[in-house]
Design a protein around this nucleic acid. Structure first.
Length: 100
DNA sequence: ACGGTGACTAACC
DNA sequence: CGGTTAGCCACCG
C-alpha cells in the first residue's frame, strides 16, 4: 500500500477495480484499503460516487445505495449482476461478491 | 481539538 | 422481515 495516498483516492481506486457483474460491500471496500470505516466509504461515495461505478458498491444486505435503487437496477440488468428475487432490489452477494 | 452527521454493520427483539 | 441500539470511523464546519 502506498503511503501518502489519502482515504478518498484509495476508496475510488478499489471501486474502479470491481469487475462488471460483481459488487463489494462498503465494509469490503474499507477492508481492502486496510480500514474499517464503512461509513467513511459511504461519505466518499456520496460525494465522488458519480465519477465511478457506484452501483457496484452495496450494503452488507445486498441492497444498493439508498435513494438510487431504481438506477442501480438498470445497471444490474445491463451487466447481468445476480439479483435476489423479491419486491425490493437486492444483489445476491453469495454469487456477486468480489474478493481481491 | 470537538461535536454533529451519515450511500454502514452487527446484534437483538 | 422490520425496528431499535450501539459501535464504528472519516468528513466537515
Amino acid at each position: 500500500m502506498e503511503a501518502g495516498e489519502d482515504f478518498v483516492s484509495r476508496v475510488l481506486a478499489v471501486v474502479e477495480s470491481i469487475p462488471p457483474g460483481a459488487v463489494m460491500t462498503y465494509g469490503d471496500v474499507a477492508a481492502a484499503i486496510g480500514s474499517r470505516a464503512a461509513r467513511g466509504v459511504g461519505q466518499v461515495m456520496a460525494y465522488y460516487g458519480s465519477e465511478v461505478q457506484w452501483w457496484r458498491v452495496v450494503r452488507a444486505s445486498g441492497h444498493p445505495a439508498s435513494g438510487h435503487e431504481d438506477r442501480a437496477l438498470e445497471r444490474y440488468r445491463a451487466e447481468g449482476t445476480p439479483l435476489v428475487a423479491g419486491s425490493s432490489v437486492r444483489v445476491n452477494l453469495r454469487l456477486a461478491r468480489h474478493r481481491p
